[in-house]
């Protein structure tokens, strides 16, 4: 046992610079998880729901999902997994 204390971690001379706002796809996705979104597939079918999560393939898990075809609701799902290759876009349906 000794009473030497480890040196305190070197305090940074200044706080690290805030990461620049890039507006990249990754940043967009971070902002939109948990929000209401519209997912449009290349077929034109829309899925409206709350974005639970997604991965690098744009595979998507949605909650409270409504399927819209030509503007009409055609199905409702509590949860839905959408395979990413079908996704045309993910659009925010409420302010991010």
């Amino acid at each position: 046992m000794d009473d030497t204390t480890p040196p305190p971690p070197a305090a940074p001379a200044s706080p690290p610079p805030a990461p620049p706002h890039t507006g990249s796809p990754t940043d967009f996705l971070k902002g939109v998880v948990g929000k209401r979104v519209v997912v449009r597939l290349t077929s034109g079918v829309d899925y409206r729901g709350v974005l639970s999560c997604l991965d690098g393939y744009m595979n998507i898990a949605l909650e409270q999902t409504e399927e819209h075809v030509n503007g009409a609701v055609t199905n409702r799902y509590g949860d839905a997994f959408i395979r990413g290759n079908n996704v045309l876009y993910i659009s925010a349906a409420e302010p991010i």
Partner: peptide, 8 residues
């Protein structure tokens, strides 16, 4: 018309 959108 769409708000902020991620286009594949």
């Amino acid at each position: 018309k769409l708000a902020q959108t991620l286009l594949n």
